[in-house]
Design a protein around this nucleic acid. Sequence first.
DNA 1: AGCACGCCGACT
DNA 2: GTCGGCGTGCTC
Length: 722
Amino acid sequence: MSNKVSVQVAVNVPLSMTFTYLADKPLPIGCRVRVPFRGGEQTGVVVDDQQSADVPAHKLKHVESCLDEIPPLPADFLELIRFTAQYYRHPIGQALFAALPGPLRRPQPARWPDERGWQLTLAAHDTEGPPPRQKARHALWHALAEPLAYQQAKAITPQAPALLKQWLAEGLVERVDAEPPLVVAEGPTLNDEQAAAVEAVAGSFGSFAPWLLNGITGSGKTEVYLRLIERVLAAGQQVLVLVPEINLTPQLVERFARRFPATPLAALHSGLADGERLAGWLAAWRGSAGIVIGTRLAAFTPLARVGLIIVDEEHDGSFKQQDELRYHARDLAVWRARQAGVPIVLGSATPSLESVANVEAGRYRELSLTRRAHGAAALPTVRLIDIRRQKLLDGLAEPAIAALRKRVERKELSLVYVNRRGYAPVIACTECGWLSGCPHCSSRLVWHVTDRRLHCHHCGYHEAPPRACPDCGNSDLKPMGQGTQRIEEALIALLPGARVLRIDRDTVGRKDAWEAIYRKVHGGEVDVLIGTQMLAKGHDFPALSLVLVLNADGGLYSADFRASERLFAQLSQVAGRAGRADTPGEVLVQTQWPEHPLYQALVAHDVAGFAAQQLAERREAGFPPAAFQVAVRADARTLEEASAFLDAAAALAEPPEGVTLAGPAPALMMRLANRERAHLLVESPQRVRLHTFLDDWLPRLAGLQQAHRQVRWSIDVDPQDF
DNA sequence: AGCACGCCGACT
DNA sequence: GTCGGCGTGCTC
């Protein structure tokens, strides 16, 4: 008998361990294997060649050879997965399989896609080709005089795959090996700020350097990306671009493809068919895709020759995955940039406080774009409407209605932005603005209808609500943020003849719905748009004459300490939609707290000032980014069950100096899918201490499940939402 | 997570 | 007598 070797294999099960298998000959680390597991079969990935300690020999099963003809998964990819699994406290196998494209999770061999191009054969040149009246065929035929990549062909006509197949069979086209040339379409001239940003980043090529590209809306961040991409491509390297999870990915992809028409581009967004995703993933890994652009999952894509990473709208919350493997794609991207030794550009008009703090600490360098790129385009005028002194008609103040009427008459486009999310019912005094605060920490108390008490969502403290305002004695205390239900109907009634279009989760449910909305809006068929957060994310709508913001106050004093940061970012984004080159737009915000620093900063377009003020508050309160957090989240049929589990978990903790536990406290969105949710927070000013504590504590929690059978729980490292 | 093994109630 | 409830324990 030949000597057996053993390998460590990760399989897609929720266990933090890997499994030992026997093999006839050494298997390379990173190769995919088909393994017998639990009587059935599983896909596995060899992650180590070490013998693991004390597994009884009779349990060891045998593994056949590698599945694939393609090379084993690269070492830097496995290292990324290992780091991710460990940092976010997720089983290694599940982290690995979450990062792999669908087809690679199944135990079937994979092959490199055929990336050869197409070109007309000599024989084809002697034929007429399709007549000009068959526009698509004609265009494709003439383009095929030069070698054409699949992507380019498909850009000419969607029928390209079928036509190429047909012409190939007829001997009119042939497959050719062609190194795609770098073709760069002309772009606009850079202003000096943009040029300086490009030079600064380009000067750091070849080594790890994190950059915060802080540019106001309309300042031309994308053009900076494009110039940097051009340089990276010219050096024969790849660029990874991460974008938030919104429907504007296609727009950005199209812009990149137009600038670099010959460069293979892999777009890895959700809603891609398995085959396409795999092809893009493999092209990225192999190095043939020059540009790889995708949403958060693309952060895991292996890249053979990466030269630059870009994270657009880095402040966006959708970079954090909220279930299963709860990773933050922006943070992992920074880790990858360090691993690969390349610069990373984090772009935003409203940078996250994490990034601002990193600039302050000297870890990131900041590049500012302070001017709008397109000539005279001025920032919009922001005005606050104090609704304490106004009679509201169905939630709308008189000046707001008047402003809307004016635009409708002038046939100009208005947007009514209804802030729905993130409002927690904090009790407020309608007279003096007093808010229910927690006596034990710097959070707000939240009104719970179920037990008619005020709860602190940070430390779990609760009390009966006061009958009157403790500050001024007024007995008119009300939960904030109500009454948005009938805005749509009210607007239609108040603006007779206006064409109103509502955009929300319901109206954009289908894939082609956006298409239709764009057509309507661009075709001038709409007077007033009504929408929620999804409109705050920089969609390509024509310039808005007026933006009216309703119900924003809920984000001011939310129990979630990040609510103001998000609100400010959203309002800055929508405000940025207002105005055109010749006339500045107008933004109206209805509020009970016009004197609030957030609104004052918004009026003054003072992004940096707001960030500084927020950062000071966070430091004062000991919240991120001044501290690091880990949430243990639990849900059960009743809050008591969930809390009992978390209490038991807390009882097992022996937090060292500098690590504190807070809670359990009910989650902000308490009831979800008929289950009650609560969490326990672990905090520390030092990340290392926090994680050292977790290393000791989390293994002890495994045993708790038996006694709390009804409870589902999970770990959320660097939680974003509460 | 799945999936089997295991020990107690109402069915042809 | 058996079908099946889901408690509990393991997966190389």
